[in-house]
Design a protein around this nucleic acid. Structure first.
Lengths: 197, 197
DNA sequence: CCTTAGGTAGACCGATCTGTCTACCTAAGA
DNA sequence: TCTTAGGTAGACAGATCGGTCTACCTAAGG
């Protein structure tokens, strides 16, 4: 019986992500990642030319796992309005750290990383912006299921994205873990408003 | 004629804020702040027992200047709905770096600082949360001018805060500098919805 | 068994981090 | 004018940073 050797590159990325997410990127040195993962520095620099590339890999890793989680949440309810409301249920579970797949809540990794790399031209910042754009596309697709006029579809998409981002901020900065529930209540009301017209 | 000696403590705080805001807190060493301000390290540690205390001073400084700016913006329009919409005009000016008082836009300093100091119990994080709570109080006061039932007042306040935080996130992470205008449009529609009922 | 090639370990490098220390400089009061 | 106290300057210390280098270890092929 052969025990498969752990893929060290993936272990590095997962370990790096865990620390970058919980403690911040500049605050975490590669030595800590190496000590925790039991991997040698030479091996890290064999796989990644610099810490920055490790950070980018951590961002791609989180982008994939977060997106995968969110997609599956939205797929498991009937398309349309219910899926849009489910988004905020999912956020609430995330805020309360009830989603093992994506770990203990510590704000949005992409917002946090953008805060540390504020320059819009920075590769890390750009990767964060692309993640957000991808999530917006996902949301827009679900809004499209409502079969509203295109202008309204865009407007609802904007509203949902703004509410979502706002809820993440309030949950993290102020510890208002039910911010997404507030947002959900508001969204319901507004959707009814649109329906009445 | 006596030339008043520059208050070195204030110069330290202003210089520190400038760098912390534009480059991040962990990414900026005290040596850089000292070199830029021309102040000696001993003087810094005479006024502040540690870098962390300097960071807290920078946060208090920003809290004061930002709050002062926002209050004056909201005071200069008729109370009520116009003031609420003016909030988003002010945000738009901020995002486009058209407000010299508060400098070039680089996201919300308090969100950024919270990202670097994620622990809710951390003094820096708590100071950021208190700033946000203070701004929410300010907004609630203006919503109160609409003389709506208390529940509705709270709901509108939540909506505005969520839209504001969401707009800040989108403006910084994705560079959508007109996010506050989108939010304003949505707010107008929603307020009309409430009025119709 | 021997060779060889490539991944691995961790000592090491110069730079930079926060924070300390001594020596000095200046201004106020006798 | 002399004393004295406190703010100031910047060298310094010890730790840690990102990144490099040499020595080694292991597994495959002849």
């Amino acid at each position: 019986m052969l025990i498969l050797p752990m893929d060290k590159q993936e272990l590095l990325v997962r370990t790096a992500f865990k620390f970058f997410y919980t403690r911040g990127i500049h605050a975490v040195g590669v030595n800590l990642v190496l000590a925790e993962s039991g991997i040698a520095k030479k091996t890290l620099y064999h796989h990644f030319p610099s810490k920055e590339h490790l950070v980018e890999a951590a961002i791609r890793y989180r982008d994939h796992s977060y997106r995968t989680w969110l997609i599956s949440r939205l797929e498991n309810v009937p398309a349309g309005k219910l899926a849009l409301l489910e988004l905020f249920n999912a956020l609430t579970d995330w805020f309360h750290s009830r989603v093992p797949d994506i770990g203990h809540f510590n704000g949005c990794f992409f917002i946090n990383a953008s805060a540390e790399f504020g320059d819009q031209d920075n590769a890390i910042h750009r990767a964060c912006a692309e993640h957000k754009a991808g999530i917006t596309v996902l949301i827009r697709k679900h809004v499209g299921e409502l079969s509203l006029p295109e202008g309204i579809t865009e407007e609802i998409t904007s509203l949902i994205v703004l509410l979502k981002e706002g809820a993440i901020s309030m949950a993290h900065v102020q510890g208002k873990l039910d911010a997404a529930l507030e947002a959900k209540g508001i969204l319901e009301k507004v959707l009814n408003c649109y329906a009445d017209k």
